[in-house]
């Protein structure tokens, strides 16, 4: 039964990875940059959920949308304040554009980690569980109640987001901008608005991911570092910018780590993903599902 157990646990972890990686992938699609502060969106969400539930005594089911709201706002503010130069005043920022994005998001990550460390403190808080049942038994499997409910919430959110991007008016505009920014703007699409929506959405998704996992990985200022590294691996594995690719890659990574931790090495389980990332960037930079970039 160990195999089935590992598979289910890997898939559940993969669902949470997907929640983070979708946002990162959308950002890469639309701005062609990697957000190195993505883990801190996750961390802020985890704190927003935990602290609002603990301090105000409200139900975790109210804290969860609150964390989403905080994440949406944070993403929007970051886009407005820091990402604008990436596409306004395009020509003069053509050189060092990637470097600007790396520097600013990397610094933002250090800033958020340390400001939270100062304001909230370095101690871990335990996030409240969404449901009081500690164990749910399905056939031969026993899964913690919170884990199962949280995974179901995550799946629901992923489906809703995927539908919005696929079919809604704004979602189609986002797709257009990530296919060809210049072309989209010529067709009358407000690319700045599309970028703002994407960043905000990415912040919200990462925050929900942090909130859902706050019961399992208790929030500390640097709790977002590892989830962020996982999501870098995932967007590379799934093809930068491809949402279905990152969902499938998340599940693959979750399962792979779950088995690798038992059968290969528990100590080095966090390095597997990083090796995959390097190998993919070198030999298959378009990822499993991405389209190879063509240079003219």
């Amino acid at each position: 039964m160990l195999t089935l157990d590992l598979l289910i646990n890997g898939l559940i972890i993969g669902v949470f990875y997907a929640l983070m990686a979708i946002g990162l992938s959308l950002i890469f699609g639309i701005l062609k940059v990697v957000n190195f502060a993505h883990g801190e969106f996750y961390m802020v969400g985890a704190y927003a959920y935990t602290l609002s539930a603990l301090a105000l005594g409200i139900s975790p089911w109210v804290s969860l949308p609150f964390a989403l709201l905080v994440g949406l706002l944070l993403g929007l503010v970051v886009e407005r304040l820091l990402m604008r130069p990436l596409y306004s005043g395009y020509t003069s920022w053509g050189v060092m554009r990637d470097e600007y994005a790396v520097i600013v998001t990397f610094a933002l990550s250090i800033f958020l980690i340390n400001i939270v460390d100062k304001v909230v403190g370095p101690y871990a808080y335990k996030g409240p569980a969404l449901i009081g049942i500690s164990r749910i038994t399905i056939g031969p499997l026993a899964i913690s109640g919170h884990r199962l409910i949280a995974a179901m919430v995550a799946v629901t959110v992923i489906i809703v987001v995927a539908l919005i991007i696929r079919y809604s008016f704004w979602g189609r505009q986002i797709q257009a901008v990530s296919q060809n920014r210049l072309g989209a703007s010529l067709a009358g699409i407000d690319t700045a608005k599309a970028s703002a929506i994407v960043f905000s959405l990415a912040g919200g998704l990462a925050a929900v991911s942090g909130a859902l996992l706050a019961n399992i990985f208790n929030p500390t200022p640097d709790v977002g570092v590892f989830p962020a590294i996982k999501s870098y691996v995932i967007v590379v594995l799934g093809g930068m910018g491809s949402v279905p690719g990152s969902i499938i890659a998340s599940l693959i990574l979750g399962v792979f780590e779950s088995f690798g931790g038992v059968y290969i090495s528990y100590q080095y389980r966090d390095t597997f993903g990083l090796f995959i990332l390097i190998l993919f960037l070198l030999f298959r930079p378009q990822g499993l599902f991405g389209e190879k970039a063509r240079e003219v």
């Binding site: 940059v33 470097e99 790396v102 090796f275 960037l281």
Partner: peptide, 28 residues
């Protein structure tokens, strides 16, 4: 030699992974 072809965010991600792997290997 390995990262020759990589630019911008791809280079940043690869060197970041290298950095984390080296640190984890030494501390483990």
């Amino acid at each position: 030699r390995i990262v020759l072809r990589l630019r911008g965010p791809y280079l940043a991600l690869t060197t970041l992974s290298f950095a984390e792997i080296m640190r984890l290997v030494i501390s483990n």
